[in-house]
Computed example of a mutant assay.
Amino acid sequence: MKNIAVHLAEGFEEIEAISIIDVLRRANLKVTVVSVTGDLVVTGAHQIQVTADKLFEDVDYSEIEMLVLPGGMPGSANLKAHSGLREQILNFNDNGKPLGAICAAPMVFGNLGLLNNKKATCYPGFEEELHGAVITGNDVEQAGNIITGKGAGVAIKFALKIVENIKGQKAAGELGRKMVVEHM
């Protein structure tokens, strides 16, 4: 079973994090919620607290097959500031492993130079942080191993795109129908 690590930092966007975790688990994918804060309880941008499964330092990244970053502020900036996470992102990208980020979080990839000449999308106003990217403004965009999403309103579509990449378009479409969501 694929193991996807969804990373939480203080100030994460709750709708994005919970929607992604929920949709991936509905698709019978293994999701590990990872706190980069040093505490299992992480507070979102709207003061909702979520308990992570593991602390960053306790994760064996050799067992993780995809990294996902929910957005929100200051959550995205806090993810960007975490040197260990940046190192893992670079390692995953170097090995062609899938990466996903939504809302403001694609700035983490942009600041690492991973979006050069690649189509990407983000929350309006963060385009300048996606260094070298071809900004599309689409709800969800995929360029090679990197999936980006625009914001909270498309979190389910973003998660279904991840499901599509792992389990195929048919599985993503069926799950979307069960959830009464139009899949791209």
Score class of each variant (00 low, 15 high):
4 I>L: 11
4 I>G: 01
4 I>R: 02
7 H>F: 15
11 G>H: 05
11 G>T: 05
13 E>F: 01
13 E>C: 02
15 I>W: 04
16 E>Y: 00
16 E>M: 00
18 I>C: 06
18 I>N: 03
20 I>K: 01
20 I>C: 08
21 I>W: 03
21 I>P: 01
22 D>N: 10
23 V>S: 10
24 L>R: 06
25 R>T: 12
26 R>Y: 06
27 A>G: 10
28 N>I: 06
30 K>E: 08
33 V>C: 14
33 V>Y: 05
33 V>I: 15
35 S>M: 04
35 S>A: 08
37 T>W: 04
38 G>E: 12
40 L>H: 09
42 V>S: 01
43 T>Q: 09
46 H>V: 04
50 V>R: 03
51 T>S: 11
51 T>A: 13
59 V>H: 07
61 Y>V: 08
61 Y>M: 11
63 E>K: 14
67 L>K: 02
67 L>M: 11
69 L>R: 02
71 G>M: 11
74 P>D: 09
81 A>N: 13
82 H>D: 14
82 H>R: 10
87 E>R: 11
90 L>N: 13
93 N>P: 08
95 N>A: 09
95 N>R: 13
97 K>R: 13
102 I>V: 12
104 A>G: 04
104 A>N: 07
107 M>F: 02
107 M>P: 00
111 N>E: 15
112 L>W: 07
114 L>I: 09
118 K>R: 15
122 C>A: 13
122 C>E: 06
124 P>Q: 13
126 F>G: 01
126 F>D: 06
127 E>W: 10
127 E>G: 08
130 L>S: 05
130 L>R: 04
131 H>S: 10
133 A>V: 11
134 V>C: 11
135 I>V: 12
135 I>G: 08
136 T>N: 08
138 N>I: 04
147 I>R: 05
149 G>H: 03
151 G>Y: 04
152 A>K: 01
152 A>E: 01
153 G>K: 02
155 A>Y: 00
159 A>H: 00
159 A>V: 02
160 L>R: 03
162 I>E: 00
163 V>L: 05
164 E>V: 00
164 E>Y: 00
170 K>T: 12
178 K>A: 14
180 V>Q: 14
181 V>E: 13
182 E>L: 09
184 M>R: 12
